[in-house]
Amino acid sequence: MDPLLDFTGKVAVITGAAQGFGKLLAEELAMRGAKLVISDINGGVQQVADDIASKGTDVIALTCDVSKNGDCKAMVDKAIETFGRVDIGVNNAGVAHEFMPLHEIDESVMDSQFAINVKGVQFGMRHQIKQMLTQGEGIILNVSSMAGLGGAARGSAYAMAKHAVIGLTKTGAVEYARSNIRINAICPFFTLTPMVTDFADETMQGKMSKGAPMGRLGEPKEIVAMMLMMLSPANTYMTGQCIAIDGGVSAA
């Protein structure tokens, strides 16, 4: 196996793994030798784990509400109890909200975005970092968004939360760089995961795709390919970076 993408023996914890990026990343890491603890608030995560386990990978599925610190701690604790360490933490779980003007966003929408998209990432990082400090190394990847790098018309609460994820990523990278813990974020443009398809029909997707120079939305496999490179054990000098995977949006 190419050493750039060899995860043999690495222990990865992934939130939001019942579908979308989390599910595909879990499958890809499993094929490359990783051991997994995957979670989701959606009970479908057990089926994902069963499918992966049937191919010979050590994998555990947990129900996890990332807005609860105790659930995030339990996930890391389970990885330590079962596999003895946590090499990779992927804080992927997140939610969107309906498109609406900023002046119509009420407090309940902001509370939901902050609880899941911000606190959920910080809770994950908190417990992952504690274990990685004990080990003397680790890799964390947070899932932000292009909405975290710029404005997002009619998505202000989501943008607010995803900007916060970038702040957490950069701050954590600076704090723990000398502890050999690398922390980065990936920032996708609209991608054909359930987070997009549940909110936007084909007509809306067509309008959204016009915002990208490539003229289309992203495919999940395209985003996960970059996630794998960012998590590569050979990628040892990259930290604090928030990488846009956007079909050229940020270049326009």
Rank of each mutant, 00 (worst) to 15 (best):
V37E: 00
E202C: 02
Q19R: 15
G247S: 04
V109I: 15
S39G: 14
M75C: 10
F7C: 01
M226F: 13
A153Q: 07
M1T: 08
S144I: 03
S209A: 15
A34F: 02
D111V: 13
L25R: 09
L217P: 08
D50C: 01
C187L: 02
N92V: 05
L29S: 05
D111E: 15
M238H: 10
G248I: 09
G240Q: 04
N180G: 07
A61E: 09
T193N: 08
G218V: 04
S209H: 07
R182N: 05
L4Y: 11
V76E: 00
M214R: 09
K162R: 12
L36C: 04
M204W: 12
N42D: 15
G20M: 13
F21P: 11
F189W: 14
T239D: 07
I14P: 06
Q46K: 14
Q205S: 00
A18N: 08
V37P: 00
G172Q: 09
V224R: 03
L217V: 11
V66K: 04
A74Y: 00
I88H: 02
A18S: 15
S54I: 00
R32S: 00
V45T: 04
A34R: 03
G211D: 08
V109R: 13
V95T: 14
E137R: 03
D71F: 07
K55R: 14
T171E: 12
V118L: 13
V11I: 15
V90G: 04
I41F: 04
L24C: 11
M132T: 06
F123Y: 15
D246F: 09
D198E: 14
F190W: 14
A185R: 07
S144K: 00
G20R: 13
N235H: 11
F190T: 10
A53Q: 12
F123P: 02
D65K: 08
D106N: 14
T191E: 07
M204G: 00
A18D: 11
D2M: 08
I52N: 05
P233S: 12
A185E: 06
M229Q: 11
G138V: 03
M146F: 01
M100G: 06
S145I: 01
I140N: 01
D40T: 04
D198F: 05
V11L: 06
I116W: 09
G33S: 11
V109C: 12
S156T: 10
F199I: 13
L36G: 01
E222V: 07
D2W: 02
A251Y: 02
V86R: 02
G9D: 14
L5E: 10
I116D: 12
R178M: 09
L133G: 05
L141Q: 00
A147S: 15
S179W: 02
E81K: 14
I129Y: 02
A173N: 09
A157S: 14
H127R: 07
K23M: 13
L228M: 14
K23H: 13
D201M: 03
N142G: 02
M195Q: 12
C242R: 05
L29A: 06
L133V: 11
E202M: 01
Q47T: 12
P220I: 09
A252Y: 04
Q205R: 15
S232G: 10
Q113E: 15
A30N: 05
D71W: 06
